[in-house]
Amino acid sequence: MLEVQNLSMRFGGLLAVDQVSLDVQEHEIVSIIGPNGAGKTTVFNCLSGFYRPTGGKILFEDKEIQGKPDYRISRLGLVRTFQHVRLFNQMTVVENLLVAQHRHLNTNLIAGLLKTPDYRDRERKSLDRAAYWLDRVGLLDLANREAGNLAYGQQRRLEIARCMVTEPKLLMLDEPAAGLNPAETRDLNQLIISLKEDYNVSVVLIEHDMSLVMDISDRINVISQGRPLASGTPEEVRQNEDVIKAYLGEA
Protein backbone atom coordinates (compact mmCIF):
# COMPACT_ATOMS: atom_id res chain seq x y z
CA MET A 1 0.00 0.00 0.00
CA LEU A 2 3.00 2.27 0.53
CA GLU A 3 5.82 2.39 -1.91
CA VAL A 4 8.85 4.63 -1.56
CA GLN A 5 11.15 4.93 -4.55
CA ASN A 6 14.61 6.47 -4.34
CA LEU A 7 13.67 8.95 -1.66
CA SER A 8 16.29 11.65 -1.05
CA MET A 9 16.35 14.53 1.35
CA ARG A 10 19.09 17.11 1.36
CA PHE A 11 19.63 19.76 4.02
CA GLY A 12 22.08 22.21 2.51
CA GLY A 13 25.25 20.20 2.12
CA LEU A 14 24.02 17.24 4.12
CA LEU A 15 22.35 14.41 2.30
CA ALA A 16 20.34 13.06 5.22
CA VAL A 17 18.45 10.50 3.14
CA ASP A 18 20.03 9.11 0.01
CA GLN A 19 18.05 6.98 -2.45
CA VAL A 20 16.06 5.04 0.09
CA SER A 21 13.42 2.67 -1.25
CA LEU A 22 11.02 0.61 0.75
CA ASP A 23 7.52 -0.75 0.52
CA VAL A 24 4.80 -1.79 2.91
CA GLN A 25 2.06 -4.24 2.01
CA GLU A 26 -1.30 -4.47 3.68
CA HIS A 27 -1.31 -6.31 6.95
CA GLU A 28 2.40 -5.97 7.52
CA ILE A 29 4.78 -4.58 10.11
CA VAL A 30 7.88 -3.11 8.53
CA SER A 31 10.74 -1.77 10.61
CA ILE A 32 13.37 0.79 9.82
CA ILE A 33 16.51 0.45 11.87
CA GLY A 34 19.90 2.08 11.74
CA PRO A 35 22.45 3.85 13.92
CA ASN A 36 21.78 7.28 15.43
CA GLY A 37 21.60 9.99 12.84
CA ALA A 38 21.07 7.49 10.03
CA GLY A 39 18.11 9.47 8.71
CA LYS A 40 15.22 7.34 9.94
CA THR A 41 13.20 10.19 11.39
CA THR A 42 13.89 12.21 8.28
CA VAL A 43 12.34 9.43 6.18
CA PHE A 44 9.24 9.64 8.41
CA ASN A 45 9.15 13.39 8.06
CA CYS A 46 9.16 13.02 4.29
CA LEU A 47 6.48 10.33 4.31
CA SER A 48 4.21 12.31 6.59
CA GLY A 49 4.58 15.45 4.49
CA PHE A 50 6.45 17.35 7.12
CA TYR A 51 9.40 17.80 4.77
CA ARG A 52 9.20 18.10 1.03
CA PRO A 53 11.63 15.46 -0.23
CA THR A 54 14.30 16.70 -2.62
CA GLY A 55 14.09 13.56 -4.72
CA GLY A 56 12.16 10.37 -5.27
CA LYS A 57 8.58 9.25 -5.22
CA ILE A 58 6.19 8.23 -2.47
CA LEU A 59 3.13 6.28 -3.51
CA PHE A 60 0.35 5.66 -1.03
CA GLU A 61 -2.36 3.41 -2.41
CA ASP A 62 -0.96 4.12 -5.87
CA LYS A 63 -1.27 7.88 -5.54
CA GLU A 64 1.78 10.13 -5.41
CA ILE A 65 1.86 11.98 -2.14
CA GLN A 66 5.34 13.49 -2.00
CA GLY A 67 5.18 17.21 -1.37
CA LYS A 68 1.56 17.17 -0.29
CA PRO A 69 0.80 19.11 2.89
CA ASP A 70 1.02 17.04 6.06
CA TYR A 71 -2.60 17.40 7.13
CA ARG A 72 -3.77 16.05 3.78
CA ILE A 73 -1.54 13.01 4.01
CA SER A 74 -2.83 12.39 7.50
CA ARG A 75 -6.39 12.51 6.22
CA LEU A 76 -5.53 9.88 3.62
CA GLY A 77 -4.90 7.50 6.50
CA LEU A 78 -1.14 7.78 6.92
CA VAL A 79 -0.64 8.85 10.52
CA ARG A 80 2.48 9.06 12.68
CA THR A 81 3.77 9.44 16.20
CA PHE A 82 6.83 11.42 17.16
CA GLN A 83 10.20 10.46 18.54
CA HIS A 84 9.64 13.00 21.31
CA VAL A 85 6.07 12.68 22.50
CA ARG A 86 3.90 15.49 21.26
CA LEU A 87 0.66 15.68 23.19
CA PHE A 88 -1.57 18.65 23.83
CA ASN A 89 -0.39 18.90 27.39
CA GLN A 90 -2.96 21.26 28.78
CA MET A 91 -5.88 19.39 27.33
CA THR A 92 -7.32 16.37 29.02
CA VAL A 93 -6.61 12.88 27.81
CA VAL A 94 -10.03 12.48 26.23
CA GLU A 95 -9.80 15.89 24.59
CA ASN A 96 -6.56 14.86 22.96
CA LEU A 97 -8.50 12.07 21.33
CA LEU A 98 -11.33 14.39 20.33
CA VAL A 99 -8.98 16.77 18.57
CA ALA A 100 -7.70 13.83 16.54
CA GLN A 101 -11.24 13.07 15.41
CA HIS A 102 -11.80 16.50 13.96
CA ARG A 103 -12.48 14.91 10.61
CA HIS A 104 -15.19 12.65 12.03
CA LEU A 105 -16.97 15.47 13.82
CA ASN A 106 -19.54 17.85 12.50
CA THR A 107 -17.45 20.98 12.28
CA ASN A 108 -20.18 23.13 10.83
CA LEU A 109 -20.37 26.14 13.13
CA ILE A 110 -24.10 26.62 12.79
CA ALA A 111 -24.74 22.94 13.46
CA GLY A 112 -22.58 23.15 16.55
CA LEU A 113 -24.22 26.29 17.87
CA LEU A 114 -27.67 24.81 17.38
CA LYS A 115 -26.61 21.35 18.56
CA THR A 116 -28.30 19.64 15.67
CA PRO A 117 -29.00 15.90 16.00
CA ASP A 118 -26.23 15.11 13.56
CA TYR A 119 -23.76 17.16 15.57
CA ARG A 120 -24.68 15.44 18.82
CA ASP A 121 -24.66 12.08 17.21
CA ARG A 122 -21.16 12.49 15.89
CA GLU A 123 -19.92 14.00 19.12
CA ARG A 124 -21.27 11.01 21.03
CA LYS A 125 -19.73 8.59 18.58
CA SER A 126 -16.33 10.17 18.87
CA LEU A 127 -16.54 10.11 22.65
CA ASP A 128 -17.38 6.42 22.38
CA ARG A 129 -14.45 5.85 20.08
CA ALA A 130 -12.19 7.73 22.46
CA ALA A 131 -13.42 5.68 25.39
CA TYR A 132 -12.89 2.50 23.46
CA TRP A 133 -9.28 3.29 22.64
CA LEU A 134 -8.52 4.57 26.10
CA ASP A 135 -9.75 1.29 27.45
CA ARG A 136 -7.70 -0.53 24.85
CA VAL A 137 -4.44 1.14 25.93
CA GLY A 138 -5.36 1.06 29.61
CA LEU A 139 -5.87 4.77 30.19
CA LEU A 140 -9.62 4.89 30.71
CA ASP A 141 -9.26 5.73 34.40
CA LEU A 142 -7.19 8.75 33.50
CA ALA A 143 -9.54 10.09 30.83
CA ASN A 144 -10.19 13.41 32.55
CA ARG A 145 -6.62 14.11 33.61
CA GLU A 146 -4.48 16.67 31.88
CA ALA A 147 -2.33 14.87 29.35
CA GLY A 148 0.82 16.66 30.50
CA ASN A 149 0.50 15.07 33.94
CA LEU A 150 0.65 11.49 32.73
CA ALA A 151 3.67 9.28 33.28
CA TYR A 152 5.97 8.90 30.29
CA GLY A 153 4.83 5.41 29.36
CA GLN A 154 1.21 6.50 29.55
CA GLN A 155 1.93 9.46 27.29
CA ARG A 156 3.43 7.11 24.73
CA ARG A 157 0.33 4.94 24.77
CA LEU A 158 -1.93 7.97 24.59
CA GLU A 159 -0.08 9.12 21.50
CA ILE A 160 -0.75 5.77 19.82
CA ALA A 161 -4.40 5.87 20.86
CA ARG A 162 -4.62 9.36 19.45
CA CYS A 163 -3.44 8.08 16.10
CA MET A 164 -5.80 5.13 16.19
CA VAL A 165 -8.96 7.18 16.71
CA THR A 166 -8.29 8.80 13.35
CA GLU A 167 -8.82 5.31 11.90
CA PRO A 168 -5.59 5.19 9.92
CA LYS A 169 -4.65 2.63 7.33
CA LEU A 170 -0.95 2.90 7.94
CA LEU A 171 0.57 3.85 11.27
CA MET A 172 4.12 5.14 11.56
CA LEU A 173 5.70 4.81 15.00
CA ASP A 174 8.94 6.62 15.73
CA GLU A 175 10.76 4.82 18.54
CA PRO A 176 7.64 3.97 20.53
CA ALA A 177 9.61 1.92 23.07
CA ALA A 178 12.14 4.63 23.91
CA GLY A 179 12.10 5.26 27.63
CA LEU A 180 9.80 2.37 28.46
CA ASN A 181 10.65 -0.30 31.03
CA PRO A 182 10.74 -3.96 29.95
CA ALA A 183 7.19 -4.69 31.12
CA GLU A 184 5.85 -1.70 29.25
CA THR A 185 7.82 -2.70 26.18
CA ARG A 186 6.20 -6.12 26.29
CA ASP A 187 2.73 -4.54 26.44
CA LEU A 188 3.64 -2.32 23.55
CA ASN A 189 4.75 -5.35 21.61
CA GLN A 190 1.33 -6.94 22.16
CA LEU A 191 -0.43 -3.73 21.24
CA ILE A 192 1.38 -3.30 17.94
CA ILE A 193 0.69 -6.89 16.92
CA SER A 194 -2.94 -6.45 17.84
CA LEU A 195 -3.16 -3.29 15.75
CA LYS A 196 -2.13 -5.35 12.78
CA GLU A 197 -4.17 -8.46 13.56
CA ASP A 198 -7.37 -6.99 14.97
CA TYR A 199 -7.63 -3.60 13.33
CA ASN A 200 -5.97 -4.36 10.02
CA VAL A 201 -3.54 -1.49 10.25
CA SER A 202 -0.11 -1.73 8.66
CA VAL A 203 2.73 -0.41 10.75
CA VAL A 204 6.05 1.20 9.93
CA LEU A 205 8.25 1.12 12.98
CA ILE A 206 11.47 2.90 13.84
CA GLU A 207 13.04 1.27 16.84
CA HIS A 208 16.36 0.79 18.54
CA ASP A 209 15.14 -2.02 20.79
CA MET A 210 16.31 -5.01 18.74
CA SER A 211 14.33 -7.63 20.62
CA LEU A 212 11.12 -5.75 19.89
CA VAL A 213 12.06 -5.26 16.25
CA MET A 214 13.07 -8.85 15.66
CA ASP A 215 9.97 -10.11 17.45
CA ILE A 216 7.24 -8.33 15.62
CA SER A 217 8.58 -7.21 12.26
CA ASP A 218 7.59 -8.94 9.09
CA ARG A 219 10.38 -7.19 7.24
CA ILE A 220 13.20 -4.88 8.21
CA ASN A 221 14.98 -2.10 6.33
CA VAL A 222 18.37 -1.05 7.55
CA ILE A 223 19.72 2.37 6.70
CA SER A 224 23.05 3.84 7.60
CA GLN A 225 24.17 7.39 6.96
CA GLY A 226 21.12 7.97 4.84
CA ARG A 227 21.80 5.06 2.50
CA PRO A 228 19.92 1.78 2.42
CA LEU A 229 22.15 -0.93 3.80
CA ALA A 230 20.02 -4.04 3.73
CA SER A 231 16.46 -5.24 3.81
CA GLY A 232 14.63 -8.49 4.30
CA THR A 233 13.07 -10.68 6.95
CA PRO A 234 14.42 -10.44 10.49
CA GLU A 235 16.38 -13.66 9.91
CA GLU A 236 18.05 -12.35 6.77
CA VAL A 237 18.92 -9.03 8.32
CA ARG A 238 20.33 -10.65 11.43
CA GLN A 239 22.75 -12.61 9.26
CA ASN A 240 23.67 -9.81 6.89
CA GLU A 241 27.39 -9.07 6.97
CA ASP A 242 27.04 -5.35 6.31
CA VAL A 243 24.53 -4.92 9.08
CA ILE A 244 26.69 -6.73 11.58
CA LYS A 245 29.64 -4.62 10.55
CA ALA A 246 27.71 -1.37 10.80
CA TYR A 247 26.35 -2.18 14.21
CA LEU A 248 29.57 -3.58 15.58
CA GLY A 249 31.51 -0.72 14.07
CA GLU A 250 29.26 1.72 15.80
CA ALA A 251 29.49 -0.06 19.14
Binding site: D70, Y71, N106, T107, L109
Partner: peptide
Protein backbone atom coordinates in the same frame (compact mmCIF):
# COMPACT_ATOMS: atom_id res chain seq x y z
CA UNK B 1 -17.03 22.80 19.95
CA UNK B 2 -14.53 21.03 17.72
CA UNK B 3 -13.36 24.36 16.37
CA UNK B 4 -12.50 25.60 19.87
CA UNK B 5 -10.49 22.49 20.59
CA UNK B 6 -8.74 22.86 17.26
CA UNK B 7 -7.68 26.42 18.16
CA UNK B 8 -6.21 25.28 21.39
CA UNK B 9 -4.55 22.21 19.89
CA UNK B 10 -2.92 24.29 17.19
CA UNK B 11 -1.73 26.81 19.74
CA UNK B 12 -0.27 24.14 21.97
CA UNK B 13 1.49 22.04 19.38
CA UNK B 14 1.10 22.97 15.77
CA UNK B 15 3.12 20.05 14.42
CA UNK B 16 1.12 17.46 16.32
CA UNK B 17 -2.14 19.11 15.32
CA UNK B 18 -1.20 19.05 11.67
CA UNK B 19 -0.07 15.47 11.86
CA UNK B 20 -3.61 14.64 12.98
CA UNK B 21 -5.17 16.22 9.94
Amino acid sequence: MPVGRAWEALREDEIAARSLG
